[in-house]
Design a protein around this nucleic acid. Structure first.
Lengths: 261, 261
DNA sequence: GTTTAAATTTGATGTAGATCAATAAAAGAG
DNA sequence: CTCTTTTATTGATCTACATCAAATTTAAAC
């Protein structure tokens, strides 16, 4: 187990999110494990890594709830200081275009990265907002860069991480874009989020949907009314079941058929 | 000038594409220039780089014209051997999903990369097809990898290249996805391709459109009939002019307004 | 608990773009 | 050059989704 005592303590004080990701299933793994496979492995990670930092709505509970005090991990266009891996909870990634119109460009679940695509411009490409009480691992870029100059293996791992991310990014984009009908789009989305959460939620077909209808609709590029109608339709057709926030996919096969066609 | 004599010769024997990209404007630059800024710079590039390879429809002119003999640079799912930069011409990138439905996931213009996102899986994620008579620079991955083990600076440059690509990829995706109306989508697309070609075509508002209507429509996710109607509408509204393959954007401002809203 | 506000669902109607169908214009073949 | 095939444009209709509007549920505030 790679967690420090401090982190474990945090885990016991807050039980709302039982689904912490294993380090083994985390995309950050390439750069946050001690390098070298022998017994004399050096652990450089202390220089740049902080594990399980909480990012919660409660952090700012004393302040009035305005958009500016919402639980934002980092803001679009601000200078890159660290890249993050989600430990628990869900984040939404928002991007404003030149015209100032805000769009949700993605969601991040445990084991997934945020901010790593800012390494080029050294400014974040989107804002990351916590949906509920979340936690993240934080990798500070400056010391990471310094360490990777010294350790070729770390640098190699960083390349591996970046190429993997590039691939994942494209794959997720492809899962959504180019779907014609809204049915198709929604089916693809539901399958996508359940699959991405399968490893730590324990099931491929059950997921706690903390994302609001508004946010899902915005991400998919449809109206919330349309989304609502479709969810109802899917439920009537026994494709899914929605019980509060608990989403269950009842027929993976039928959903896949819908999503691919 | 960084081109070899051989390359320059090729340039004179084939005049159909006057718009070869400058190496200075090419995304491959980080890894295809001699490293070290001093006079004793070593040139490792001979080990893995071949400049200006032609990829043309004419290559296979003796064979019957079937889809299988079309000028494909590489095929989706085949093992990664090299990554490419476009020197001249236009490529379309096609991707088949699990259901076997083919989609155009992008176009590549001079100075842009192809196949670099295959470094993780070591298999190409899409097929690259030349539209007309094109040329590319070819970087063989195995020797590149070997060289980068020896030269930390090259490895650093490779990281830079990958992070830049990740950023560009996301930016281009964002330019297209999430646009509601087809007008908006088309305006964004026209601006995008003209901008990406501005440096080597010499103009931000003129572009030789070698891509077929079918391919554009497929990429944008609309029907060719709709595309046709929109192009006619744009022409009536004096937003663009189409003369054969010559596309001219008549009002960048109005197009931008259309694209952003 | 009650009250208020926000989020979600359901209903009625309008419109953008798909689909079907027919020309028209380019591009190849001989 | 003519003939054939492919690609692009224009027209008529149909449908999925957006939009406007109201009801209902859920969550937050007190």
């Amino acid at each position: 187990m790679t967690l420090s005592n401090k982190s474990t303590k945090k885990n016991t004080t807050q039980q709302k999110h039982p689904h912490y990701v294993d380090c083994d299933n985390c995309s950050m793994q390439a750069i946050c494990q001690p390098i070298g496979s022998d017994n004399q492995a050096i652990d450089l990670t202390n220089n740049y890594l902080t594990r399980r930092v909480e990012v919660s709505a409660e952090q700012s509970s004393l302040l009035p709830k305005t958009p500016s005090t919402c639980p934002t991990l980092f803001d679009q266009a601000s200078p890159l200081t660290a890249i993050f891996a989600v430990c628990s909870g869900t984040f939404k990634l928002c991007q404003k275009n030149d015209a100032g119109i805000e769009k949700i460009v993605g969601f991040r679940f445990p084991g997934e990265l945020m901010g790593e695509d800012a390494l080029f411009l050294e400014r974040y490409n989107y804002s990351a907002v916590a949906l509920g009480d979340n936690s993240v691992c934080e990798v500070f870029v400056e010391p990471l860069s310094a360490c990777s100059q010294l350790a070729p293996e770390l640098q190699q791992n960083l390349i591996q991480l970046l190429t993997k991310q590039s691939y994942e990014q494209q794959r997720n984009a492809h899962a959504i874009t180019g779907k014609k009908s809204a049915d198709c789009l929604l089916a693809a989305f539901l399958l996508n989020i359940c699959q991405r959460n399968a490893k730590h939620s324990g099931s491929e077909s059950v997921f706690e949907l903390t994302i609001s209808r508004q946010d899902i609709a915005c991400f998919l590029g449809i109206r919330r009314e349309t989304l609502s109608r479709l969810l109802s339709k899917f439920q009537h057709e026994q494709l899914i079941n929605l019980n509060g926030k608990q989403l269950t996919l009842l027929s993976l096969n039928q959903l896949k058929k819908l999503a691919n066609l």
